[in-house]
Design a protein around this nucleic acid. Structure first.
Lengths: 245, 245
DNA sequence: CGCCCGGTTGACTATGGTCAATACGTGTGG
DNA sequence: CCACACGTATTGACCATAGTCAACCGGGCG
């Protein structure tokens, strides 16, 4: 279960060097500490409804959350996967056009909106970092557009697994060669919503990849990849990008 | 054909109040003038290849350009449609992961990379505006993810037309009720690349919408929409959003 | 005139969606 | 302790949407 830290010291924070506060010095950190507070959410809990007021912006400290949009008739598309250090909310706007939902136990480091916006104008280290993070998210969204628009179901599944594997490895859990383990916190339905597929197709394609030995299942939510290169080939991407044997 | 302005005065610039320089005062504008120069491109011309060095960042002054990604086997996905006032390039990175292509005659207002990056750190009005524009693009990309992942071919076409219509109306050419005219500068193939479809499917769906009287063609690149509400219904979106009667 | 490019249309196919039955795991209550 | 129910996942049969391949149209230009 999620820690119930009252107001942990920023210098101890697990996302200290990757979140919006990454470039802050001790002085700036102190100003952030003034306006921050933690909140915890349980799996399945809604953090914010689309177009509702959100009194804060926040960093994900632990856990996984999603951003998603839903059409009138129920079709939904996930548009963001929020892992630790990712930022939630838009400065200068009190509502988010997306539903924000906790997928696992989630801990947020929240900042009251108004003071945070003031801080943005007075603290270049924060606004610069936020610009950088936003540009990264824009690149990620555009990469995802390629997946949604042009890849086959099998390639979509492989792409999702490689992206989660890569992000886990950045967070520092595993190297990206040899057999690796991917903890995917998503249900089949959530994967389908992310990939623009139905949950049946997701299930079938995962079964196919398993049958062919490209992945192995260890329970429903843990996937073992014996050879990451094999999985990369299935994504349909340029795979010469980098390592030569 | 595109104007060949040597170094027009910023205060005369058609995108003065919407581009990255929108919030600059006379003083800041002057510093921008120092490092700017114009470049023109012809339809079909490549402005930048993916992963090649770009010595500048730029604002689109006139014309239409696209951002796109291509897989090894030739499948391509457009990930951005650049209209006047849109920004090209990423500060802090010398290459773009996308192909940038002129679709019509294009005029860019270019800034040499290094001086522009220095300006970013010293001129909050520019960096704030850039953050805002980037957040807008992120929202647009995410809206597009919904189109790519969850909409039918017909809904995709309708969505593209409404988006272009909306952007043209912002630029100040037309109201959004009653019969409106959409100038779409894209070939069927470019539309297909944007929508994640084949050009045949684009052609068929446009024919279907025409047959049903929702749109009329005036030449190949000009579309008349007799009733914008009818088109909105075809997008599959929430259409109660706003106007009552 | 004839070619080329962009567009349209048709016939057929394939990929992924729909609907439905079945399996599996976990927590609840008799 | 077992029975059951519920949520999640798998699998199958069938179908619909969009993709493929190919023929044809029409305007502009050498």
């Amino acid at each position: 279960m999620a820690l119930l830290m009252a107001k942990a010291d920023c210098s101890e924070c697990p996302i200290r060097h990757r979140a919006v506060c990454a470039r802050c010095d001790a002085d700036e950190l102190e100003r952030l500490e003034q306006i921050k507070y933690y909140r915890n959410y349980e799996p399945g809990q809604t953090i914010a409804w689309a177009d509702d007021e959100m009194p804060f912006v926040a960093s994900v400290v632990a856990g996984v959350a999603t951003l998603s949009q839903t059409l009138e008739d129920g079709r939904t598309q996930m548009v963001g996967l929020l892992l630790p250090s990712d930022f939630i909310g838009r400065p200068g706007r009190a509502t988010s056009p997306y539903d924000v939902t906790a997928v696992s136990d989630v801990t947020l480091c929240c900042f009251r909106r108004k003071p945070f916006e003031e801080l943005l104008t007075t603290t270049p280290h924060v606004s610069e970092r936020l610009l950088d993070m936003t540009l990264d998210e824009l690149d990620a969204a555009r990469e995802w557009m390629l997946v949604l628009g042009r890849k086959t179901a099998r390639e979509k599944i492989a792409s999702l697994l490689t992206i989660i594997a890569r992000r886990e490895s950045v967070i520092g859990m595993a190297p990206l060669s040899g057999p690796i383990v991917v903890n995917l916190p998503l249900t089949r339905e959530a994967m389908a919503d992310y990939l623009g597929l139905t949950l049946e197709t997701v299930s079938r394609q995962i079964s196919a990849l398993k049958r062919e030995g490209i992945i192995q299942l260890d329970g429903k939510r843990r996937i073992v990849v014996p050879d990451f290169q094999d999985l990369l080939i299935e994504t349909g991407d340029d795979m010469d990008g980098g390592l030569v044997s």
